[in-house]
Amino acid sequence: MTNDSTGTLIRKTSDRLGRPPAGHPAGAVNRESVRKFKSWLVRIWPSAAVFVAVVLIWEISVGVLNLSSFVIAKPSEFMQEMWISREMLLDATWVTTEEILQGFLFSIVVGMVLALALARFHWVERALYPLIVLFQVVPKVALAPIFILWFGYGLAPKIILIVVIAFFPITLNMLVGLKAIDKELLLLMRSIGATRNQVLTQIQIPTSLPYLFAGLRIAITLAVIGAVVAEFAGAQNGLGYLIQFASTQLDTPLMFAALILVSLLGLVLYYAMSLAEYLLARKYPHITLQATN
């Protein structure tokens, strides 16, 4: 009896950790994946049911209450709109995706370089860290019109706004990771006369990777926000621009269609980021596993 419940408990724990117990036989992989899929279904159905219910209630109540489609569009209306304007919407989605990806890449570069410089050189930390924190207080959404003024309506102001919004969690997370170095490891490095660069490259950077990935996940969602805000401020294409444009035309179905696509885009990018992390973690387990001893 007691044994049984302990067994269940342990199995549940390994489920939650999302990895098979160590040393499971290769033949069990197929059964394992079927079991995983089933447990995924079990986890997903409540939120799926709520989602369907909300869409239905939305559809029905807009009709019953006889609300004007200027105010709120029915799901069926903007689904239709999505199909009718598919070329324009796909084009806009592509433009926005391009902005997000380029901005995100620059954010990674800026964020990591800053974190490394702050961790490696005390004077950089003393000079820059208070300013970076101060800069976080600035509502960066308000910077969008300024960037448009300075850099025009092209790609540049979008990328710059994304970087300004998204670099911070990358820098902060990586910096925390770089400083999370084990004190005993530091003693070991000192006992062999290792240089600061060696400590940084051999110990600190690998240690910081799980922290960095947590920062990247936050940053990708911020990059989506940055792109939309930048397009609001001034653009000639993109989903944010379409939302803005549709609102001036009182084309509510188009507005909702673009809004849905932006949300989907954010979701897809977030899970792409998670997938990248998962694939990397399979090769280098330490990027998500914390030190255990």
Binding site: L185, L187, S191, G193, Y284, L289, Q290
Partner: peptide
């Protein structure tokens, strides 16, 4: 002596690199 690598330290915790 440190520069000549004459010491080997065994600290209180093993402090192994987990990866």
């Amino acid at each position: 002596a440190v520069r000549r690598r004459q010491f080997g330290l065994v600290p209180q915790k093993a402090a192994l690199l987990p990866w």
